[in-house]
Design a protein around this nucleic acid. Sequence first.
DNA 1: TATGAAAGTTACTTTTTGTAACTTAGTTTT
DNA 2: AAAACTAAGTTACAAAAAGTAACTTTCATA
Lengths: 142, 142
Amino acid sequence: METITDNQKVKVAKKLKKMFGHMDRSEMEYCPIRDVMALASDKWSILIILYLGYYPVMRFNHIKKRVYGISNKVLSERLKHLETDGYLKRTMYPEVPIRVEYELTDFGHSYLKKLIDLTEWVTDYSDLIIESRKAKSQGVPK
Amino acid sequence: METITDNQKVKVAKKLKKMFGHMDRSEMEYCPIRDVMALASDKWSILIILYLGYYPVMRFNHIKKRVYGISNKVLSERLKHLETDGYLKRTMYPEVPIRVEYELTDFGHSYLKKLIDLTEWVTDYSDLIIESRKAKSQGVPK
DNA sequence: TATGAAAGTTACTTTTTGTAACTTAGTTTT
DNA sequence: AAAACTAAGTTACAAAAAGTAACTTTCATA
């Protein structure tokens, strides 16, 4: 992993200062950013968006197969919210059996880029993390 | 929002292809990346890490005050996991009353950078999203 | 002796998820 | 003509996760 220089830390601190202007209400007010983050960083939403980046157009059952482990219920909920929030577009073809296609909007694509950066990082370091986890769980005899 | 060009989409597709080499097991195998993502993208974990970026050293109750709304229980759990996974370091001073300090590891700082990028994006567009949400929920009369 | 503070833990309630069976509407097969 | 088949969900119920609030521990101080 790249080491973080103090210089970089200063940059990071600046960005945080800017961001926390919005976030840092230690009282219990409504915070739109948290609200948006809640959906955007949800584990299932992330997978859905990544797969929609990979397969530009997907139908309900296709997503369900790829995002293995997701239930109809949660998939249906997340798709609705992701559509409502503008990340994806749902197109229904009134054929029989019904056909419904999902695809990212431009907005969704813009978010996809950020998610890819995040996922790349996780991909690169997941082995390291799993190692750390094992090491700690085995008890460090010191 | 910046429009996504086809050229950019190609780049994105390439990255996804690489990533999905790891992720795309449509069978129910254990996937370390998902596992890591589950903690790393958790809503409370994100807030904890962001605040630890802002205040380099924090004690339990300080974190609890800043990450408003989090319960002792969940905070305690997340801190343990984040420590186990190597994002942060916990230092206990056996004074009375006890003092425990949390700070990001280098690894945690490296992840913080990614989180900041993500959060910046969310910050920039959260208004747009809230708008989209309102528009859709009011029913679009067409 | 009683009070207090910090960092949790615990028992219990509420909310969110997961499971699996069911619905809907035409199409094709028997 | 009735029965079976699709895809895309929905629904009722069970299981897991999160929230709540009271409790614990340790020793210094009033």
